[in-house]
Design a protein around this nucleic acid. Structure first.
Lengths: 232, 232
DNA sequence: GTTTAAGATTACTAACTGCTAATAAAATAT
DNA sequence: ATATTTTATTAGCAGTTAGTAATCTTAAAC
């Protein structure tokens, strides 16, 4: 088990500790995942910590005007918090692009490293990195990279699970970026940009038989099909 | 004023906190700078902290077998500590090369950023980075990059201050990497690889008049001349 | 050789984060 | 509507790092 904690005590406004940044990012992601209001336990689960610790931090982030927090009622990010979250996500995704495109990592290896790199403080570094990478708009998992000002293309179209029989789609992203999931996709031969076509839907367990690039067919579970985004 | 502190509580052996790593690096550098034994106050000065805090940390590092520590008598690194220090310095210098060669930073801008990046934990990342950079042997300030196993070319030849009148040398490194010093060199037109020739030595304040690349002449103070390394 | 100054250490306190246990509020079940 | 369960919060403690003040050790001065 690894626990990281970067503490940035800093006079500059708008610079938060390693831990604070991880909370901000987590709250953002849970919101984006559909939660109107993010509750304490879900944050604790993602961050592998206890609800009590989360409550403490929420109080702190609320005082810093990063979140709207009503006791027992969950939290949402303030606009300041959203901008902050998007800046962190921007850094994370740019570093992932760097790792894959420049250092030849595969998409299942980059998450943990980018998790560390996203906390490096230097706006100029990110500007230069962005330029060096050719201003990418997506990370290696198909997720959009927020702009410097915090704009981001939302609205991820359809899940593979929603494809009808004989319908095709191109893999444009994944909902889960855990190495175990991505390695499973590697083994199945599914990658970003691959064309998949549903050959059969198994009623019993909702699993799908899909062909990849009009080539070999594989069976994917409902769980897997719900974590793959396809173009319309 | 900035104070960073990355805390890595980790079950893996040989992984230390952000703060611990900074202490290890500082002790190494003070030793390399000629100190037989490193004393508490000098560490405190470099790390911009207080002697009392240093004493605490020394006790801790001693228990972890990173340093030899005798109270009131100063510290030296154990062989484990030296290896650890060289790994950190390796990372620091590789990232500096990346910043200068790939992201177009100048040599006076990279120190603070590399100071953060050197703490990223991923041996594979550093291996890939090294490869990506073409296995550089020196950083942008002319300092040697330790190998993966902790070997390093020591023995920096001569200081510009030691050049005789009419003697030439090529700038192969700098002893100080503070932005203020490097920016001063930029302004003087002195860079790594430049040939300099001593035209005159001012007895009064030991300053030197040197020509750069057989071109323009500039006056450099004794302080500056003692922070420039030249080839034999 | 005693006194003084410099350097280093300890004791205590504080900020940050995380834990457990106890408690409180909200949601659910009956 | 009350009881029960789930969820969240507070209180108190611990580990890490840093700061202040007081104390102790060593080195230097006379």
């Amino acid at each position: 088990m690894i626990a990281h904690q970067l503490l940035l005590t800093d006079n500059r406004r708008n610079v938060h500790s390693y831990t604070e940044e991880n909370y901000i990012k987590t709250i953002y992601k849970l919101s984006a995942d559909g939660a109107e209001v993010v509750n304490t336990n879900s944050i604790a689960e993602v961050l592998q910590t206890k609800a009590a610790s989360v409550s403490d931090m929420l109080k702190k982030l609320s005082n810093k005007n990063i979140i709207h927090y009503v006791k027992y009622r969950g939290v949402t990010l303030t606009s300041e918090g959203q901008i902050k979250a998007l800046q962190i996500i921007r850094k994370h995704r740019l570093w992932e692009v760097f790792l894959v495109n420049k250092l030849n990592f595969s998409w299942d290896e980059v998450h943990d490293i980018a998790e560390q790199m996203e906390h490096i403080q230097s706006p100029l570094l990110i500007k230069r990195l962005d330029e060096f990478l050719g201003y990418p708009t997506q990370d290696p998992h198909g997720d959009p990279i927020p702009t410097e000002t915090g704009e981001i293309k939302h609205g991820r179209q359809r899940l593979a699970a929603e494809l009808e029989i004989n319908e095709s789609g191109v893999v444009v992203g994944v909902r889960d970026t855990k190495p175990s999931f991505l390695q499973h996709l590697n083994k199945l031969g599914i990658f970003l940009g691959a064309q998949i076509k549903v050959k059969e839907k198994v009623e019993y367990d909702k699993s799908l038989e899909v062909s990849i690039e009009d080539n070999k067919s594989v069976l994917i579970s409902a769980e897997v099909s719900k974590n793959i985004y396809v173009s319309a």
